[in-house]
């Protein structure tokens, strides 16, 4: 589904990713862990198409298509969706506006008609209930004045509505208390199915107790240095990252 090969990325002249390779198949949940500054957030930002990241070599393909040749919105419409670590506040744009505009843009890209308003409202209400959010959130400006936890729930709400093929979640657990974590994890877990993949970037093992990954990667200094099953995350939690570095250097 997603194939990243020997990716090199520089930010403001500094090389952040130094030959990263990664393969994600449908139905899989991957977690990328690593110390601060390893390049975890860079990877998902590059896949989503954020400005300021220069790909100096390597490829990213999604379902056989060259992702680096696609516009930001094309990537999203193709089913590549990024849940932000720090969701931006958009004053004056109501949540309901964003959801409708995004959903219809994606439908249009697939050649489908706009979803009729009553059907749309029914769908939104169902998803918002699942995320234990009050319907008043729909009329509020996107993320404006939301707490950290509310912003993250809002990201997942968008995922539930837009149903991406590959959901990328960048530090979705940061700033969440345990109750919010459960709601967010339930949301993410509801997305799991045989045709969809999830890529989580996280600093802490804690999230992985709630969203159990199939594959865990350790990203250190711009490269994936170790890949394993869910137990690897537990090992990292107890032993830290040093041993992985030593092992890969050996």
């Amino acid at each position: 589904m997603l194939e990243v090969k020997d990716l090199h990325v520089t930010v403001e002249g500094k090389e952040i990713l130094k030959g990263l390779s990664l393969t994600i198949n449908p139905g899989e949940v991957h977690a990328i862990m690593g110390p601060n500054g390893a390049g975890k957030s860079t990877l998902s930002a590059v896949i989503a198409g954020k400005d300021g990241y220069e790909v100096t070599s390597g490829t990213i393909t999604f379902e056989g298509k060259d992702v680096l040749e696609m516009d930001i919105e094309e990537r999203a419409c193709a089913g590549l969706l990024l849940g932000f670590q720090y969701p931006v506040e958009i004053p004056g744009v109501k949540n309901i506006y964003l959801l409708k505009a995004a959903l219809n843009a994606q439908r249009a890209a697939r050649g489908e008609d706009e979803m009729p308003a009553p059907e749309f409202m029914k769908l939104v209400r169902e998803k918002i209930k699942f995320m234990k959010m009050d319907s008043s959130f729909l009329q509020r400006a996107v993320n404006e004045g939301f707490s950290g936890g509310e912003k993250k729930r809002n990201e997942i709400l968008q995922m539930l509505l837009l149903q991406p093929k590959l959901a990328m979640l960048d530090e979705i657990d940061s700033g969440l208390d345990i109750d919010a974590m459960k709601v967010v994890a339930d949301g993410v877990n509801s997305l799991r199915d045989a045709n969809r993949a999830i890529l989580m970037v996280t600093h802490y093992q804690r999230l992985l107790d709630h969203i159990v990954p199939d594959v865990v990667h350790v990203l250190v200094d711009g490269r994936i240095v170790k890949t394993g099953g869910k137990d690897l995350a537990l090992e990292l939690e107890s032993r830290g990252y040093e041993w992985v570095l030593e092992e890969s250097a050996a």
């Binding site: 954020k50 919105e73 964003l98």
Partner: peptide, 12 residues
């Protein structure tokens, strides 16, 4: 904010 909207599929 423009990036955030485009990253949801909304054209520029």
């Amino acid at each position: 904010a423009i990036f955030a909207l485009r990253a949801r599929g909304i054209d520029e």
